[in-house]
Amino acid sequence: MKDLKNTTIVITGASSGAGRAAALKFAQHQCTLVLAARNETALNEVKGECEELGATVFVVPTDTSDAKAMIALANSVNGIDVWINNAGVLAAGDFDKTPMAIHEQVIKTNLIGYMNGAHAVLPIFKQQGAGILINNISIGGFLPVPYGAGYTAAKFGLRGWSEALKGELTECPNIHICDLFPAFLDTPGILHAGNHTGKVLKPAPPVYDPNRLADAMVSMVQDPRSNKYVGSTSMLLKVAHAIAPELMTKMTGLIMRRYLKNADPIKLTDGNLFNTVDYGMSTHGGFGLPGKPKAHRKYIAAALATGITAGLWLFKK
């Protein structure tokens, strides 16, 4: 699909962050977009922006954790070429001090929501004999996040589920399952997070522009591949964890504890886990350097890798 004009693309989590960035990127190709999220007001804002770029846009308010709602989303248009599983939530806190309802909701959205999407669209792809399913998994599919146990459970589960799905579809060469593993992104997601740490949360640097992930999504549609790592840091973190998993896990826990010890206090909140919010619905979260990827970020990633290697050595000593 080098020419994406008139391609029908469903994007979940399109109201903000990477999903919103993806909608705007695909709109430049004059695609037919089906935008899904819980926040209908924000979706309509994105719709207007995409229509100005020449796209045909449908808004379908959807809770991805609701299987019936996802089937209705899949049936909202005739024929789907691309389905992008992107909607996700965050929650942070000591595992035992965070209510189980919080952990369950993170898994329902971040894991079951993706499975609901695939379950709804794969019959359409099989009937057509073709289709592309893109899963925005994140480097969290390889690297555990201490104080985000529910999030880690969902992301590790996503990676395994997607691999199993790829095995099932080996006899369907024109149906592609594509997984994206971006590093930390400058999106409002962390502002929407359920926060039971009592401290202000910030993403770990270096933080990448969500437009970089949106570009990767467009690239996946034009030239599907099984996996793509977005940002040098993503691959470096994966390799570091593969080489020394125990040390990396201990080190990330140490870094998180030191950060939380020094961070500013904040009230506990469930964020957008159970209900949508009316703030921070932009593409960027204001934590990074908005704009196109710059060459110097590779040097930042290299410095990070050096720091990780040194830290692992010191920690081992």
Rank of each mutant, 00 (worst) to 15 (best):
G113S: 10
G141I: 03
N110G: 03
I134M: 02
G131C: 07
N136A: 01
Y114R: 09
F142S: 05
I124N: 01
A153K: 02
M115K: 12
G140N: 13
I137E: 04
A149E: 06
T109L: 07
I139S: 10
P144F: 00
I107T: 09
G113T: 13
Q105A: 06
L122W: 12
F142G: 03
V106D: 12
I137L: 04
I132L: 04
L111G: 07
H103A: 08
E104Q: 14
F125S: 11
Q105R: 15
K155A: 00
F125E: 08
P123S: 07
G150Q: 14
F125Q: 10
A154K: 11
A118I: 07
A130N: 14
F125V: 11
N136M: 06
A118Y: 08
A120P: 10
G141E: 06
T109D: 12
K155L: 03
I102M: 05
Q128A: 15
V121Y: 05
A149S: 15
G141Q: 11
I137A: 02
A149M: 02
H119W: 03
V106C: 08
P123K: 10
G150K: 13
I134W: 00
A153Q: 07
V106E: 14
I107E: 11
M115R: 12
A153H: 03
I132T: 14
Q105E: 14
P144A: 01
I134F: 01
T109Q: 12
I134E: 00
I112L: 10
K126Y: 03
G150C: 14
I102A: 02
G148C: 07
I124K: 12
G148P: 02
H119T: 11
G150L: 13
I134Q: 01
